[in-house]
Design a protein around this nucleic acid. Sequence first.
DNA 1: CGCACAATTGAAGCAGCTCAAAATAAGTGG
DNA 2: CCACTTATTTTGAGCTGCTTCAATTGTGCG
Lengths: 260, 260
Amino acid sequence: MPHSLIRHLEQFGPLSEVEKHALEGAATRVRVFGPDQDLVSDGDRPTDCKLILSGFACTYKLLPDGRRQIMSFQIPGDICDLQGFFLGEMDYAIGTLTAGRVAVIPHEELLDLTETHPRIARALSQSTFVDAAIFREWMVGLGRRSAYARIAHLLCEMGQRLQVIGLAQNGSYDLPVTQTELADALGLTTVHVNRTLQQLRHEGLITVRGGTVTLSDPEGLKQAGEFDPGYLHVGRMNGIDGPPSKHLQRQEPHALRLER
Amino acid sequence: MPHSLIRHLEQFGPLSEVEKHALEGAATRVRVFGPDQDLVSDGDRPTDCKLILSGFACTYKLLPDGRRQIMSFQIPGDICDLQGFFLGEMDYAIGTLTAGRVAVIPHEELLDLTETHPRIARALSQSTFVDAAIFREWMVGLGRRSAYARIAHLLCEMGQRLQVIGLAQNGSYDLPVTQTELADALGLTTVHVNRTLQQLRHEGLITVRGGTVTLSDPEGLKQAGEFDPGYLHVGRMNGIDGPPSKHLQRQEPHALRLER
DNA sequence: CGCACAATTGAAGCAGCTCAAAATAAGTGG
DNA sequence: CCACTTATTTTGAGCTGCTTCAATTGTGCG
């Protein structure tokens, strides 16, 4: 199994064999999870970080009356509770959407890893900033886009992200997410998600068959969702593919040293 | 020389004299800005980071048709484009709301600073995670809260944040933000913000007089906004455990003096 | 086969939007 | 300090995207 974490971090630049080896070594303790389980709960003070090896998860917050806002979908390669490492206490929860395997990396080990391998530290920091960028784009959707555009946008984003880790081929990918979960992510009701999804299907933009989404008309969908993948910063840092940046002149920033 | 940055970072733990001195040294290049100017534009590749010394700014994104989503308000002490340092290209813009002063820290200098002073690096990372936490909470508002609760929540949040840097006293603070800007931040229209604000006033939760907001009934407002300040991680990291409210009440009030 | 969950449909209601205009406040130059 | 201009706040009225409530139809699975 190619390590999705390595793939994930190499987005930001190549890693040496030693570094890859160190990463593999850190992610040996594996736990198996079923669907709809919390990996971390709101208010927890975790002593390790969770790296998703397989399966989907999401970060979410619950409101007093039971409403829920999903803030991100987590896919293989994502480290989902780095916040615990830096801030101690979690202010949100992480729950699985499907069954899956999770590598558990104790904080001390992560500390070691980042002190010994600054490039890993740097890649992690960059990954953190990409997460923040995804949050911001999600906020734009929640605040300013119609239900229709929001869904289209999400489908584009997931396609792009899954492609990077090899879980999407020619615009087709598995999205093991119920319409209720979609609704919680998009700030809508299940009913409305259902109707809007139908609209997207009838317009021939997507096809859905048993949890598998196919972007039948990727360009049309991008347009419908006002999707501009720049914020994902895919392949920007390693000179490989990825969209041309608006300005030239690259400059490789160093990492902040991860300190605990 | 003013340093709200020191105050800001010391939220996460004490800094030595040497570190404070280094921070002051890094933030000597000061630029003055007028209102409604971009500090950084979408697509830029900044070569330095901007630290707000005085005045308010916001991060925002523009949609093709001119709609705008403000994703955060930036206040004195905030470093607003660390992303440029880590990812190179900006995927959002930062604009001033008022006139103000901004310290410009070249990336090389920041790199130096963080390599020489790991505790500064750590504090910066923590600050980054707090920003992400604020984003997430904002998302909950956009996705799941009513206009009424959203506004109440924002007013609580700003009160709390401004209090930390000494720009709020007994629930009263300057909020130099137009209703249109509020609307862009909250994903609403100006008209609706106006009506909802009136409701909050009539219910005696807040008072507004010339850009100054007073939380007349802080408890009521918190309840209206479902505000639970945990996500701000105030005072959690510096060993002075305990409810933030207590901690905040005994905050020395000399930030303004520093800022002038 | 039947249970539990997910997707779908219908109908009615409302929070928040749009459009349009008036009332205030905040500059700005003389 | 006043007349003039421009930005901001406020109000009214009608409209709609999305919600709510409630029920029906799949669908996966032990």
